[in-house]
Design a protein around this nucleic acid. Sequence first.
RNA 1: GGCGGGAUAGCUCAGUUGGUAGAGCAGAGGCCUGAAAAGCCUUGUGUCCCCAGUUCAAGUCUGGGUCCUGCCA
Length: 310
Amino acid sequence: MNKLKFITIQGPTASGKSSLAMELAQTLSTDIISADSRQIYRYMNIGTAKPSTEEMKAVQHHMIDIVNPDEVYNAGRYYQDAEKIISSLNAEGVIPIIVGGTGFYIKSLKEGLFDSPEIPPDVVSYYDEILNDKGSDFIYKLLEQADPDAAGRIHPNDTYRVLRSLYIWKSTGVTQTEHWENQKSQSKSDSFDIFINIDREKLYSRINTRITQMLNDGLIKEIKKILNMGFSYNCPGFSSIGYKEFIPYLKGEAELNDCVELACQHTRNYAKRQLTWFRKLDFDLTILSEDYNFYSILEQVKSFVTKQNI
RNA sequence: GGCGGGAUAGCUCAGUUGGUAGAGCAGAGGCCUGAAAAGCCUUGUGUCCCCAGUUCAAGUCUGGGUCCUGCCA
């Protein structure tokens, strides 16, 4: 398998990733691949800050609008879907730009994911029952026995990940740790990674104005429309920030202003987590939001592309 | 005006029979291999509204203020 070749633009929400990506993609005549766990969903346009139809017309975008709001999507599906697209673009001599704030999705492309089967329902219910009967400490002890290395890196309270490791062990007969070992032999990727940094205070104020803008653009109308299409507010898409906060308002249980405030707050929390994630990564180029030299970036990206020799 | 309820961390509030305070949220830092816009971890000294009194000891009891708030007028 050939190494995947791509450029990434990463950064917190509202840092200006999309506009830099557009500019680069147009200049280099390449495609954009979204790495955003919410732009995956159809009909959810305003709240997820999807590119406009004009932008999508000007540059070919991938991994946007690929499932309905009631579908479960995850990193595994993303990895499979996006990997195919990158491979075929690479085969045509195109090096795409991966843009998005879902760091985990980009990590999966850079480092791969081991081939995990669907977890059989009986395995899930088996451990769910144990969890209900004996509690999270008990299932953590089970993991300590089954996969001590995994237990060592997972906090006992992180029940979701404790369960996930147990599921893998039970359904494949191989521990998660061993899967990781095997995965190391897989080929990975060659990428040029750009990080857009932004001052915290500035980021927070941009988030607040962006949400106000979304409301002016008709966010509430969009949410109503999706609900009218028959999608329940319980479905996966509505777990998105900028959507879930407005459900109480639409049900008449909360004031609009309070919902707006919550949406801003959750977006700030999210941006903070993103910054923590990105902080530990190594980037080829770190630039400051709204304060960078496009041509300097372009030169470095071009130099990377030339070296790939495809 | 009458009768109540309240005033404790940036916000919402707990504080048992008096022993100088604690949760959630926010904020900050961190983790992260199929929920990742998710999930998880760490981090809380603040004139306990003010004044006086009782007491070895008062957020906690008593009296008096001040300011909110509910009902009745």
